[in-house]
Nucleic acid binder design. Structure first.
Ligand code: FES
Ligand code: FES
Lengths: 142, 142
DNA sequence: AGAATAAAAGATATATTTGTCTTCTATTAA
DNA sequence: TTAATAGAAGACAAATATATCTTTTATTCT
């Protein structure tokens, strides 16, 4: 599994929240969890983290809920970094304490391009694009 | 982290064992763990699994130890499948229960090519090649 | 001001992964 | 055939990830 379960839920949640935001709506934990098929309380914790890390925003009280400031300026990589950190883009595939061309493991030269491609793809994929995919073309979040 | 820690240790261990095998030597748990910088007992368990799955072979008693039948016919993907299963090549990046073009998540079309490339690279990389890299060109296992 | 709503925070629980330790079994060599 | 060696197997322990529950805080509406 390339991403932690928390991170998987996080991405799905952000896309769902963003889809609501573009319709000028805020959305609560229960509806989000239902929409993406995740455990409610755990999803709450994840949304809390995302809000602390400024990926999402939230407001309390009636008509409160989660929303996203600007879906076009948040990228997939921001969600991944918020939840799992940057290591998946930098750490050695077979767990050496450092990964570098100077001290490579026997897989380094094969893996580095793939890892870089992953970073590029994650960096170029905005939440806004994912919302468009989700809305327009029959993509799924659960 | 793309691979489990067990799988990381497993790959490093197999390369080390194979490097010994090509020199007609068998090697014990303690030396393996030392060589790859892993906990001895845990490494023992992993080697046990690899032997059960026919990635490695072992013999007990004096002059016993681990070895590999044919380094050229074992591929990286065999080690990964033995330890982590096939899911990393097939499961949805954001955790949907199924991954398919018919029911894609908003990342499917970006991720599928990368995942396929990973499978191809892992399928084409034989243990023998990794041993050559390790021996000839200053590659590292810890 | 008071009641209702909804997220934040913190404590607790469960599951999985990682790691250790002890005993058992097979092999070798004297 | 006995002692030494080394992996196999199983029980146990610690750490981390996943998940739940309760209390608190902020906001809105009446
Ligand atoms: S050193 Fe292992 S991937 Fe770079
Ligand atoms: S459905 Fe998510 S990667 Fe294929």
């Amino acid at each position: 599994m390339i991403l932690s379960k928390s991170c998987e839920y996080a991405i799905r949640a952000v896309v769902y929240v963003a889809a609501k935001t573009v319709k000028e709506e805020r959305v609560g934990i229960i509806e989000i969890a239902e929409a993406i098929g995740s455990p409610v309380a755990f999803t709450g914790k994840i949304l809390q983290t995302l809000t602390r890390k400024k990926v999402l925003a939230s407001s309390k009280g009636p008509n409160g809920g989660f929303y996203i400031i600007d879906p076009a300026s948040v990228y997939l990589i921001d969600i991944v970094r918020a939840m799992d950190g940057n290591e998946i883009f930098t750490a050695c595939v077979i767990g050496l304490t450092t990964c570098s061309a100077e001290r490579p493991c026997p897989m380094h030269h094969q893996m580095k391009p793939i890892r870089d491609q992953l970073r590029i793809d994650f960096s170029n994929r905005s939440v806004y694009e994912m919302v468009q995919a989700f809305e327009e073309n029959n993509y799924f979040l659960k």
